[in-house]
Amino acid sequence: MNPLEFDIPGAPVEVLLFAMFSLTAIVGALRVVMASDPFHSALSLLFNFVSLGALYLMLDQPFVALAQILVYAGAVVVLFLFVIAYLGDRRELATDAIRLRWLRPIAALLALSLATLLVGVVIASNFPNAVQELPETGAGFSFGSAQAIGEVFLTDYVLAFEITSVVLLVAAIGGIILGLTGRARHERMRKLMQTRSADQQKKSYDQAAAAAHRDRELNS
């Protein structure tokens, strides 16, 4: 029994809920794209993500909704906010820096036509009705529950699961390396390179690092 399904005469509450959350999702998305302050953009993205989470719940998928809230709203947006706060006020530059001015109207037109086309296709096509009886997994877990997702993930999709975890690990290492700055980065990289202890490698790296350092100082 869907907890959100209760009976109101006239418009079913589901339709109302869908209308509400889709509206917040669209408004949030529009604000992300349009706000001149990146901070506002990030906050609006939060609206968008939470609305999507609610829509996932309406689709009988509590685990994905939970993950949406935890990963996107909890982690990704917070990370964005951290970075924006760290970098300070960086609005877009004066208009004289804009290149290819004709690009913007074309892009707007393109996005509009894309939206029209896709929505038109969706309306025109004949999707099957959603199944009424939600199936259970082999072990008897209910559809969309954490147990059911876990079972499927660790049986049919175990390879995808492992690869995803490797990707996450690589991304974490990449983030650390990219985050290192200046001297610390230089030292860390040199230690990484020294595993072979090839003198020549070290020497050439030292030279490259020194040159990079010089360039940085010239630029700043």
Partner: peptide, 13 residues
């Protein structure tokens, strides 16, 4: 589809 187009517009503009 609508959200996707909005996102695309953001990337392009």
């Amino acid at each position: 589809a609508v959200l996707f187009s909005i996102g695309a517009a953001g990337v392009l503009m």
